[in-house]
Design a protein around this nucleic acid. Sequence first.
RNA 1: GAGCCGCUAGCUCAGCUGGUAGAGCAUCGGAUUUUUAAUCCGGUGGUCACAGGUUCGAAUCCUGUGCGGCUCACCA
Length: 492
Amino acid sequence: MSNILFQQRIKKLEELKKEGVALYPNTFRVDTTIFQFRKMFGEVDAQTLEQEKGPYSFAGRIMAVRNFGKAAFFHLQDRTGKLQAFIQKESTNNFFLLFKGLDIGDFVGIKGKPFRTKTNELTLLVEEICLLSKSLQPLPEKWHGLTDVETRYRQRYLDLIMNPAIRRVFEMRSATIQALRNFFLARDFFEVETPMMHPIAGGATARPFKTHHHALGIDLYLRVAPELYLKRLVIGGMERVFEINRSFRNEGISTQHNPEFTMLEFYQAYATYKDLMDLTEEMLSEVVKSLFGSLRIPYQGETLDFNPPWKRMSLRESLFSVGGFDSEFLRDPLKMRNFLETHSVTITDQENIGKLHTDLFEAIIEPQLIQPTFVINYPVEVSPLSRRRDDNPSEVERFELFIAGREIANAFSELNDPNDQKERFLKQLEEREKDADIPPEIDEDYIRALEYGMPPTAGEGIGIDRLVMLLTDSPSIRDVILFPLLRPELKG
RNA sequence: GAGCCGCUAGCUCAGCUGGUAGAGCAUCGGAUUUUUAAUCCGGUGGUCACAGGUUCGAAUCCUGUGCGGCUCACCA
């Protein structure tokens, strides 16, 4: 590190050391947060404050300094906010010793009492100050802060120091997950953790990450979904289970996709996909209400309205009512192909009617579904784990929830017929592109589990990252993941 | 994987049709005991992402590479 600012700080560090200052002590005790301090004295007038002796002790990072030679103002930032402190020669015994050697970015402990400045700002009069940890790297500029997105993602700690708003995003993320967990616990669901490393990649068709276990001498796959394990638990008698955890998909990266992402999956025996629609409305409106106190929230210039009931339409209906296609068109593979090609959708030769309909849906309908909308009754070809409809076996009992033009949830009545399941697995295997990295295997144990009998069950997956994007008005999934995956930096 | 855009001081940014790099903040030295992006005076700081090419001369034009952003593809 050749930069001069770094060298200057190393020099200061050595000078402090020479003076006998402990550079990284851990003996300072904090008794007050900045939030608590404001709560206690935020409304108290200057005269009354004079009676207040303290001392109160705080710790945090120095974020700005305004120096007057024999006195100075500075901002201290802790996890709860920023506070102005005033330090002066006459009332701080180690003023000269320390203050000369301090830099913006250093952690300090301060003790003192509250007062109000001429401009009536609540301020701490510092009676004692000590260095807690030296910052050798200079922080970004105080006014513009850190805006370079690459640096914000690579050095998220800097982003968190400089941009308080990003901290609020992750507080919202935590609160969302907490609210979801409480929702399920209150309804007698059982929280579990199932394997991340699978001998056979199943539960979705995305390409998996591959790894190797040396002692066992076998290849393993990071899970693309927890689905098949959670349903084994239902078979085992866990009639209501949920898991909130990571899945991994070895696919492209975009504003909607990170290779590792967080999913909520839950299964409820003796329920149907229709029950889950009701449950989902209840769940998300409860979460939104608890976070915002309202069911209408802003997202990227739109207002999302979570007031139930939400619109429900079949995939076919949506092609008519939202897409404006007619039934003749929807029966004609050639016309649909031509149409899709003019909308630059790439299609393979062996696509059937069902796949063409979902292509049309994804290209034309999905982006238009801004308000929460359930789309139901998908073709069986694109739903290998879903139960067929009794009145139309070419379709399945399934819904996807769309909000702001994006898929947020996917749910279905589960296929619990082991013979049908095995046939669909085999069909899937036939259609899958050959990939040397993924052996053509089906999960025989899952079939065996089904043969013991799975109760009629409905299950759902919700993309937590995408949900948090909506709740925090974030345009990119990287804004709601603390450390999104990036290519490694070049060294030197 | 493809297309478009970007990369200049620690940070935020200027830098025109090519003439040899600038501002603000930060930092260093000085002044300053009520500031709020404090103020005033004086300094330090650059392999212009990297590598080639064109040219008397390249931050600037061309080619390639790296990293990032957006869009598309992939992700039933």
